[in-house]
Design a protein around this nucleic acid. Structure first.
Length: 411
DNA sequence: ATTCCACAGGAAGCGACGGCCC
DNA sequence: GGGCCGTCGCTTCCTGTGGAAT
């Protein structure tokens, strides 16, 4: 008797090893980042002799290998230290989530937890107590501690000055160990936001990562395909197409690899033994749609109402939307939904958030005597009914959208 | 050269909430 | 149980700003 899983059998899978397409996969070598890796190695070599390596900040947009490079160099450093009998420890912290003084110190201390140590609670202790416990544990371990702060700009933009002060003063407080910081940031100008005295204590070397071009992305994809895909299931021309598409849009290796992964799934579900251009094209559309739908679903209510207002304005033919026109529609929508609107200050921040998430194109413009404002247009791909998608998870959006669309049309 | 608009966006503070400590 | 601490999502207040209009 046939089994429902027969058709899903992976015997003839185009994949050989899916793990190489995992966003957290660390490749054994890192292509096209030799200059940056060399600069990091020169700095960190001091750690092997027990000296304090200089701090570093890795700059560059997302998916250009900053995190991968720091992880790769960190691993190699720890391995080398073990061989020559020296002590080096790396602590990787993603400041997007771990973004306060308390949490960052907590995370470092947690990594050095030993049996018999008091467990530090998620909240409740005075932050100074967490700091002294962290320092105690670092000293107990000895050696050199490399703190890798991914998305470090989150700390500067949240005025976590005290934390940056603590981290840059660690070597004054530590007796038996040393510490060094590797910051990772998308924002080139973020060090400008750090107060002068802390910036000079940090005195980090800047290492810049530029987006991958089409040739480089193509090399990266070929490397992954050699390990992750069945021989004969792909050719360099198809991967080249995938790389061109990604280079044109973002130069982000992570997204290019994901595009190849989805294209492979497409090929498999079409019972094709090989990945073809059309699989990449349809995967490309699918990836973008899925990204936008996930973002829309996850928006908090007032952000949904703001996005609804932008779309309603567009549907009503308002071509150049300003903060003011969005605010009008938004307050109207809130009224219909029986909600108290947020202030225009908050709306302005929400609109900026849409820009960062690539849900809207936002540009600051000056209209001379008619003031300064933003010009806003949605970046929701055609074929996605954003209001319907947001209404699916939030009845309030439906209520607000129906009413305000009619009202606007009467204007 | 000056005025003025419609905001931008930083800073401070508030209130609610969750958690720990004594 | 009350005090303390950290966090979050706001509001309020404020100063700054580009460039067309005067």
């Amino acid at each position: 008797m046939a089994n429902i899983f027969d058709s899903a059998s992976r015997k003839n899978s185009v994949f050989v090893d899916r793990r190489v397409f995992d966003p957290h996969h660390s490749p054994p070598t890192l292509n096209h980042r030799d200059t940056q890796i060399r600069a990091m190695v020169m700095n960190l070599a001091d750690a092997l002799e027990g000296h304090i390596p200089g701090n570093m900040i890795l700059f560059g947009p997302s998916g250009v290998g900053k995190t991968a490079a720091s992880r790769f160099v960190g691993q190699q450093l720890e391995e080398r230290a073990q061989v020559i009998g020296s002590s080096v420890y790396t602590h990787e912290i993603n400041c997007q989530h771990v973004n306060t003084r308390y949490r960052v110190l907590h995370r470092i201390a947690e990594g050095l937890q030993q049996t018999g140590d008091q467990v530090i609670p998620f909240t409740g202790w005075p932050a100074d107590r967490v700091l002294s416990e962290t320092i105690r544990r670092m000293d107990r371990q000895g050696g050199v501690h490399i703190l890798i702060l991914d998305e470090m700009d989150q700390l500067a933009s949240r005025s976590e000055d005290q934390l940056l002060y603590d981290l840059t003063s660690l070597n004054v407080l530590l007796r038996e160990s040393r510490a060094s910081i590797i910051g990772i940031s998308n924002d080139l100008g973020f060090t400008e936001k750090i107060p002068g005295p802390i910036r000079s204590r940090l005195s980090a070397e800047d290492i810049v990562f530029t987006p991958y071009d089409s040739d480089q992305l193509s090399d990266i994809l070929v490397e992954r395909a050699k390990i992750g895909l069945r021989k004969g299931a792909w050719d360099e021309g198809t991967l080249r197409f995938c790389a061109d598409l990604s280079a044109k849009e973002h130069g982000d290796a992570r997204r290019a690899i994901d595009l190849l992964r989805v294209s492979t799934i497409r090929a498999e579900s079409n019972n094709s033994d090989t990945i073809e251009i059309e699989h990449i094209q349809s995967a490309h559309k699918q990836v973008e749609h899925e990204r936008v739908i996930a973002l829309l679903h996850g928006l908090p209510l007032h952000q949904k109402l703001t996005m609804t207002s932008i779309i309603i304005n567009e549907r009503n033919g308002i071509i150049t939307q300003t903060t003011g026109t969005i605010w009008e529609t938004y307050t109207q929508a809130c009224g219909l939904a029986g909600m108290k609107p947020l202030t225009s200050r908050s709306l302005s921040s929400i609109i900026n958030g849409f820009h960062s998430a690539s849900l809207a194109h936002v540009k600051n413009v000056s209209l001379g005597r008619r003031g300064r404002t933003k010009h806003v247009s949605s970046l929701i791909p055609r074929g996605i009914d954003a209001i319907r998608i947001m209404s699916e998870v939030d009845e309030t959006v439906k209520l607000a959208a129906n009413g305000s669309y009619k009202l606007q049309r009467r204007l």
